[in-house]
Write a protein that binds this DNA or RNA. Structure first.
Lengths: 216, 216
DNA sequence: AATGCTATTCTTGTATACACGATTGTTGAC
DNA sequence: GTCAACAATCGTGTATACAAGAATAGCATT
């Protein structure tokens, strides 16, 4: 548990939302949450205020908090922005790559290769996250890294669904290879272009997303 | 005043921070704020939690809240991300431009022209904001627009300082012209490139920024 | 039977009280 | 004279109490 209950509750409720334990549109009753977690309403309210500020829930004055339902279109928009940010991170990584970052990327890339070869989509899901985080870090921009991590976290559930799509695992890894090549070659523009394509959702992948979201 | 005190306080304190009434690094005492605004500590705490979630202040457990000092380097990183997001907005605007957005851009661009011609940097500061907001809206991505507005708001104080730099007003307007041309021509890539250059801080403009920040 | 009004209940919003950890100032020892 | 330890004080963290608005159910009226 974190050092104060409010923060702990924020993480706890955030996880519950991101893992779909609280469904979009669901009402979050302060008293219910308080008794459920065995605390008073005060830290619950503080947690909810923070989640509202982040944009995960909406607090309608005097009418309680509900989990925001982004909807397919909004999720698409979020991937669009994510693609742009990752593109920037990639281009910065290509320009600023140092030994530590290079090793981190190589290591996580290697783990992705193993999971992909094994066809283990759960393992790949995790390794893929680490790979992308390594790129954020390699960009050497704290603010950008922070923004990327936040959006990445928020898109996590949808990303997971997407990996279930046929062949996505192997194509994803092939894209990773090209991205690594571009970054290691110091080609920022190419890294940016590839990452935009890798993260963004174009063409049929949008219908895949919609279908997987509807399936929940 | 907003419908509930917490939200009102959040806006109030946020404005105070962004207008430099609360300096970076300054301690925000809950009791002091409560008495100052004539309310109890409860809504003050809720406001602070939200500002912490947004990233404007940092709440160190049991040690109170302090206004975050981004420092020149972090501000540079923020402008870098802003440039990327505006670039995306511009490219989307070029592709999706409709009559309403076109008129909004034309109108705000016209107002910028007048302020620039008059050499009125305060008026230009305001008109420039509206011009950029018109581009965000033209992109037709609610999420992107939201992100742009949030970051724009956070960078507002630094943007203002920058306009004071010699000749910045006229060069800024010339850049606007090229951006408008690209968007109206439907050239998304060019709009993106120009906006990245317009918003980002390269070369000597970084030292201008540092100097203006130090001057406060 | 359906609809509108009113009263009750339930939930949120704010204030206050209390407890615990951090900070600071003072005193004593080396 | 400086440093350390302890005590007092101050501020944060959580709980609870109270007030006010929103939802709901029941009753009356058409």
């Amino acid at each position: 548990m974190s050092e104060n209950v409010g923060r702990w509750l924020r993480d706890e409720i955030e996880n519950s939302i991101l893992s779909n334990e609280f469904s979009p549109g669901e009402r979050l009753d302060e008293t219910v949450l308080a008794t459920r977690f065995g605390v008073s309403r005060t830290p619950v309210r503080e947690a909810l205020m923070q989640l509202d500020a982040i944009g995960l829930i909406e607090i309608r004055p005097r009418r309680g908090a509900v989990v925001i339902d982004p909807g397919p279109h909004r999720v698409y928009e979020m991937f669009e922005v994510m693609a742009e940010l990752e593109g920037l991170a990639g281009s910065l990584a290509a320009r600023r790559l140092d030994k530590t970052s290079r090793e981190a990327i190589t290591a996580t890339h290697g783990r992705c290769e193993q999971s992909a070869a094994a066809g283990d989509s759960d393992a790949y899901y995790y390794d893929n996250e680490e790979f992308h985080k390594a790129i954020y870090a390699a960009g050497r921009s704290d603010f950008l890294e922070q923004q990327c991590l936040q959006l990445h976290r928020r898109l996590r559930p949808y990303r997971r669904l997407q990996l279930r799509v046929r062949n996505r695992l192997s194509t994803s890894f092939l894209e990773h290879c090209a991205i690594v090549d571009a970054i290691f070659a110091g080609d920022g523009d190419e890294a940016r272009r590839l990452l935009r394509g890798h993260v963004g959702i174009q063409g049929e992948r949008f219908s895949d997303l919609v279908a997987s979201m509807a399936a929940r």
